[in-house]
Simulated scan of single mutants.
Amino acid sequence: MEEGNQMPERCTECGALQLEGKTCQELFDEFTTLKYLNEDYLRVHFFLVSCFMIQHRRYSQEALAQVESVLRAALEKPMTLQQLRQMAAPGMNSHTRSWRMEHAEDVPPFPEVAWRMTIIDVARNSQAGQDVEQYCALIKQWAQSTLEQLSALRR
């Protein structure tokens, strides 16, 4: 196969096909900086981080349960950033929680999932985050899809 016609690689953590040679982590790093360019991106920053961490199986079981609960509540009833922070703070505060945010190396993450929507889809459909409204809508759609699939895992 010619070098220019190589198949895109899959993310070893979430299984998504890379977009134009960018890894999920590279896209995540780019997207997390958007909030510094335009505060409108802050509206969905929690959703971005949560979905990325869930799909890349980085949360501990305790963190996953906490994040899933806050994510579900935030999608069911739109909240201001302040309300979201107040809701998340008690369980997420590193000074008061007794559990680790990321799963320990000796503890297997939850099973692999064939995610219907990933950060790659957000990048592809929002011109890599350039369209703020489209980006925010896609991040919320990603969060909803992720929660639906998590719920299905528990059945």
Score class of each variant (00 low, 15 high):
R155K: 11
F46E: 13
L81G: 05
A88C: 06
R124S: 04
Q141G: 05
R85H: 07
A137N: 09
A123K: 06
Q25V: 12
R154L: 00
G4Q: 06
R43Q: 12
C136D: 10
G129M: 04
L153M: 08
R72V: 10
D106R: 04
E13L: 02
L153S: 04
E2K: 14
L48R: 03
E112K: 15
R97C: 08
E76A: 14
P111V: 09
V70A: 07
Y59V: 11
L147A: 03
N93L: 09
V67P: 06
M117H: 08
L71P: 01
M92Y: 14
Q66F: 14
A74Y: 00
Q127S: 01
S50M: 06
P109Y: 03
H45D: 15
R97D: 10
Y59A: 08
E76P: 00
N5P: 01
S98W: 00
A123W: 08
Y59N: 09
Q61G: 12
G129I: 03
A152H: 02
D121V: 01
M7V: 15
R43K: 15
I120S: 12
R58F: 12
V70F: 02
L75I: 15
D40L: 05
L153N: 03
C14N: 07
E62C: 05
S60V: 05
I119P: 11
M7L: 13
A123S: 11
A152E: 02
P8Y: 01
C136M: 09
F46C: 14
R154E: 03
M53E: 07
A65S: 10
S50V: 00
K140H: 03
E30S: 09
A104K: 03
E3W: 15
L17E: 14
R72H: 11
T80F: 15
I54V: 02
Q66I: 01
S151F: 10
S126W: 00
M53D: 07
T32I: 06
I119G: 13
L48E: 07
G91F: 13
V44D: 11
A65D: 14
M53R: 13
